[in-house]
Simulated scan of single mutants.
Amino acid sequence: MKNVNVLNGLNMVPDHCAIRRIGPADLKDSLTKGANDFLPVLEFLGRPLFTVLFSIFYTLICIYLITTDLPLLFPLMSGFALIGPFAAIGLYEVSRRRELGLDTFWRHVFDLRHAPSLPSILALGLVLLTLFLCWQAAADVLYVWLFGPAAPESFRGFLIEVLTTPRGWTLIILGNAIGFIFAVTVLTISVVSFPLLLDRNVGVAVAVRTSVRAVLANPLTMALWGLIVAVSLAIGFLFAFVGLAFVTPILGHASWHLYRRVVQ
Rank of each mutant, 00 (worst) to 15 (best):
H114M: 11
V6G: 06
Q136L: 13
L100Y: 07
T32K: 10
T104L: 02
I235Q: 00
V6T: 14
G236L: 05
H114D: 14
C17S: 01
A87L: 15
L42I: 10
G34N: 09
W256F: 15
L146S: 06
L216D: 03
N8H: 11
I63E: 14
V184K: 10
A18Q: 09
I173H: 08
F147D: 09
F239C: 09
F80T: 05
V247T: 00
V262M: 14
A223E: 09
D140E: 05
A123C: 10
H16C: 03
P149L: 02
L238M: 08
D111I: 06
A177L: 15
P48V: 11
A177W: 11
R167M: 12
G125W: 06
A223Q: 11
T170S: 11
K28C: 09
D111V: 06
K2D: 10
V94Q: 15
S232V: 13
R200G: 02
A150I: 13
S232F: 12
L146E: 07
V52L: 15
M222S: 11
Y259I: 05
F246V: 15
A88T: 10
F110A: 11
C17F: 00
H108N: 07
F80K: 03
L53N: 10
G9Q: 02
R260C: 13
F54D: 08
F180L: 15
C134D: 05
E99S: 15
E43F: 02
F105I: 04
F182C: 09
H114F: 13
A207D: 06
N5Y: 13
G236M: 03
L39T: 14
L102A: 09
P152M: 05
R96I: 10
G90A: 12
S117V: 02
N3E: 12
M12F: 05
I66R: 02
T67H: 09
L129Q: 01
H114S: 13
S211N: 09
F239A: 09
D29V: 12
P152E: 05
L198F: 10
E153L: 02
Y143V: 12
G9C: 03
G46D: 08
L122I: 15
L27P: 06
A240D: 08
I228T: 13
C134P: 00
